[in-house]
Simulated scan of single mutants.
Amino acid sequence: MALAENRKRARSEGEKEARKAAILAAARETIAESGFDEVTMSGLAKRARLAKGTLYLYVATKEELFLSLFVAAMEDYVDRFEELTDPGTIAEEMTRAALEVPLFLPLFARLVAVIEANVGDQALFAAKREFGRQGARAALHFAKLLDLPPARGTQVMNTLMMALQGAAQFDITSRRDPAGVPEDLRPMLASHAFAVSFPPAARLILSAVR
């Protein structure tokens, strides 16, 4: 009897994980096709082939779903950063990883004002704990790369990530169709592109600790 119950529980947990994966995949597909503003709970349920009521068992709001997507993106970003072995390429590699990890930049740009402001405490605190774990990994690697005390490595990492988030926010404006932007403003918006603005900011921060 106990064995049968364990098997049933295992299948149930497997189904839960499969549904979570389907929901996240549905969100990624919708964002890629139509953008963040077009994500709706009913649309996600339909794409994930779930009843709308079932969807709400896993996520309360679309912002909570965005938060889950960013937790996954941040983990991927830190994984890539930990592969870095040359301290002279930190700015370039941080830039490359931010551009390559799916949805990392647009989610980071929306994290505080849009996403975290519209989720419940339980989801927010769980995400913050995960960010803390990932941040500790990144800070330790910073300290090793730059031969710094752990506390100093944490300071450098935090400063770089704040600069990265700011650059991600400005990057949104750079993606406007130039045809709809007054000609005198086009150079300004072009300078807001993440690949243009973040590397020199990161190099400036790093120059102060070397």
Rank of each mutant, 00 (worst) to 15 (best):
A98L: 11
E64A: 15
V101M: 00
R80K: 09
T95M: 14
E100Y: 07
G132F: 08
L124G: 01
L105I: 12
Y56H: 15
A143G: 08
A143K: 03
R129K: 14
L103S: 08
E93I: 06
D76K: 11
A138I: 15
E64H: 12
V114R: 13
G120W: 03
L65I: 12
I115V: 10
D86I: 12
A117H: 05
L44M: 05
E82Y: 11
L111Y: 00
A48D: 02
V112N: 10
L105D: 01
T61D: 05
P87E: 08
I90K: 02
L111R: 00
T54E: 14
E63A: 04
F125S: 10
E100L: 12
L57T: 11
A139V: 00
L65F: 09
L57N: 13
A72L: 06
T95S: 09
E83N: 06
A45T: 08
K46S: 09
R80F: 09
L55C: 06
T85S: 15
L65G: 01
E82C: 11
M94Q: 04
L67F: 03
R47D: 03
A72E: 12
T61G: 05
A60N: 13
E64C: 07
G53D: 11
L44I: 08
E130Y: 04
S42V: 13
A91D: 13
A45E: 06
G120F: 02
A139C: 03
E82V: 14
A117M: 04
V78W: 03
A127N: 04
F104W: 05
P102S: 10
F70P: 01
P87G: 08
S68G: 12
D86F: 12
L55N: 02
A72R: 02
A60M: 14
L50A: 07
I90W: 04
